[in-house]
Design a protein around this nucleic acid. Sequence first.
DNA 1: CGACACATGTAACACGTTACATGATTTG
DNA 2: CAAATCATGTAACGTGTTACATGTGTCG
Lengths: 207, 207
Amino acid sequence: MSIKHSLLALLAESPRYGYQLRGEFEERTGSTWPLNIGQVYTTLDRLERDALVEKEGDDGEGHVIYSITDAGRTEVMGWFAQPVAATNPPRNELAIKLALALTLADVNVSAVVQAQRTASMKLLQDYTRQRRAAATHAGTQLSGEPGTGNANDAAWLLVLDSLIFTTEAEVRWLDHCEGWMAKRAASAGTAAKPAQARATADTAVVK
Amino acid sequence: MSIKHSLLALLAESPRYGYQLRGEFEERTGSTWPLNIGQVYTTLDRLERDALVEKEGDDGEGHVIYSITDAGRTEVMGWFAQPVAATNPPRNELAIKLALALTLADVNVSAVVQAQRTASMKLLQDYTRQRRAAATHAGTQLSGEPGTGNANDAAWLLVLDSLIFTTEAEVRWLDHCEGWMAKRAASAGTAAKPAQARATADTAVVK
DNA sequence: CGACACATGTAACACGTTACATGATTTG
DNA sequence: CAAATCATGTAACGTGTTACATGTGTCG
């Protein structure tokens, strides 16, 4: 649903052609989510089929220009007005993985958590570094001319912040899981769950 | 990729049949991510095609039992050992939406943020309520017999915590966006971006 | 000329959801 | 008996990725 509406949103601003749409999308999101060009065309086909966009003739350059219809405008405004689907939250692969690991005897949950934490911390550092670079860049742009590009820089900054916030939350959750597991292992002195009673972090995931 | 590996993980514990796999998955994740039964069967077909699982004959009950192969065991252990794909982070529809809204003249970004914040806060309250209920339930279970079911309760608790952490981060980010926009509107006294200079929160998304 | 970016597509496949068909067993 | 649950599938469709085919224009 994301891409369909993203293309509609861009077309709501002005008519564009396929290749151009990919460029605009990636520029505004800082290439965080690369957009396959093939899908742009197939999505445009479907949007045209559903009468949300229209093909215009050539623009004198030989490009296949699409423009949004009234129905499309209604659709995209509805997208902006509605919060993203509160029901059935997107599958969180990490949460699923840990939940399953917890219930499996021959998986070292601590090792899984550690591996993930290392990767997430590295990601977080990358994002933070990029954020610093982007901020200074946007700053110089701001003191410069106020033409185009500023809104895109702003969007990219906020997208980066989103990634940072999300990754921080992930790391916090991983730490929370570790603490929880340590507490559980400690209170499992005699009976309870012998399979979970290895609190020290071995390196191997499999016992 | 999530489901394929989840089914493999469950089969690594013991051979099971399709309907049973769905039940186990949903129990361990607290029905957070409902699993379509149709997909279980098609996924099992693909897993069998790829020689990661095998069909066993009847179990005396007429059920179609699947068991994991050595290749499947290798696959699932690799899944646990590897951190979830650091490259190309999953598309964040909310971030995309806000990034695009920022660059579109006729969208009221504040209204979009407000609508989302309301929805996310409500979600957060739901999760917190569920978390309280689940915690007391797990508590009584713990003081009771230490049989099966505890690991599943634990998994469900951690999944809930994951949802809470994620949603909290989302709300924080939304607030961050609001603050950022307010600051930007304030510093846009004369020139800069006139289209973004409406800081007060109207109710309508479209101007 | 050769490599590269621009530009438009098509085909095959993976993954996921919804809906439908079919039958057995259980339960009010 | 009727309804619900258990159980196994199939079909259609939407969405997304990868890879391929094809052609133009530009630049070193």
